[in-house]
Design a protein around this nucleic acid. Structure first.
Lengths: 158, 158
DNA sequence: TTCATTGCAAAGCCTTTGCATAAGT
DNA sequence: ACTTATGCAAAGGCTTTGCAATGAA
């Protein structure tokens, strides 16, 4: 079980420990709300909005407030456990960063389906492009938009 | 005469003609407000927010309303003259699409400076990645974040 | 004439913030 | 005890929308 978290990455703490450490290091406090939000967040797959998380957390913790979810999501991002992503709609989404390999997003413009993709060559070229301009690359966001197989069929058959 | 223009410069109508045609095709109306907003937009370089454009348009057209600018910017995007881009802050920016070669953005996280970049290899690979998943690529957004040369120096010399 | 457009203000979203109370450490 | 966190509601940005008046075609 430990093994699961350590696989391939040397000494990797589990997400809960990672967050506690972050909390301690920043002299913050670990509260039941934060624990609950973290739990639900980790059990999610995909890209959650604050609102979605709020709704789900509320099921087990009825008194939770929206603001707490917003604030905790920020903390999770700061701690390195979560990453903010933005697709077209005006809402910030969070995905699990911990233990996930880096990936970009391929989004169907028709049905919204979202595939996580990665291409080492693109990653490498991005660094080159940045270097070419004297920049030191620290991160990137790549969103590919297109038509998924199903929607291609749907539009040609009509 | 007609012939000459249509064959020689057929695909290169000027932006104003392009917009008028769009307006006509959609059975909309060309108004002084729209003309003025288009003028100011085309005279801008870089990435304008609706608010910025509103302020500048107001200098020559004091009675203009914010909503008109928002609405017109949407139209410009629909017509293909403008393109919406979003950097980190919560505001949509528009850049001129017409006659511009496609490019992505390399942004300094420290000072915010923004370089327009393009790499044909990356473009090509994006199509491949999409194809690999059965998608037909229709567009993409790539934002590279890093430290510009100046800010790298600044941080090492401190 | 007819129908889109305008400007204004109100309303909508999503997110942040002020504050008194509650609760970790 | 001391200080941060919480929940609520209010306030903030940015953007959209309803509407009566205006103006283009």
């Amino acid at each position: 079980m430990e093994d699961f978290f350590e696989r391939g990455v040397g000494s990797m703490k589990d997400p809960y420990a990672l967050f506690s450490d972050f909390i301690a290091r920043k002299k913050l406090k670990m509260t039941p709300q934060r624990r609950q939000i973290l739990d639900v967040f980790l059990s999610e797959e995909g890209h959650v909005t604050s609102e979605e998380l709020y709704q789900k957390v509320k099921r087990d913790y009825a008194s939770i407030g929206q603001a707490t979810v917003y604030r905790t999501l920020k903390l999770l991002a700061d701690s390195g456990l979560a990453k903010a992503v933005e697709f077209g709609d005006g809402a910030v989404r969070y995905e699990i960063l911990y233990g996930q390999s880096h990936h970009d997003h391929l989004i169907c413009e028709e049905c919204g389906v979202n595939v996580e993709v990665v291409d080492p060559a693109i990653e490498r070229l991005q660094i080159e492009v940045a270097n070419r301009h004297g920049f030191k690359l620290t991160g990137h966001k790549l969103y590919l938009y297109g038509l998924c197989p199903a929607c291609q069929k749907r539009s040609t058959s009509s």
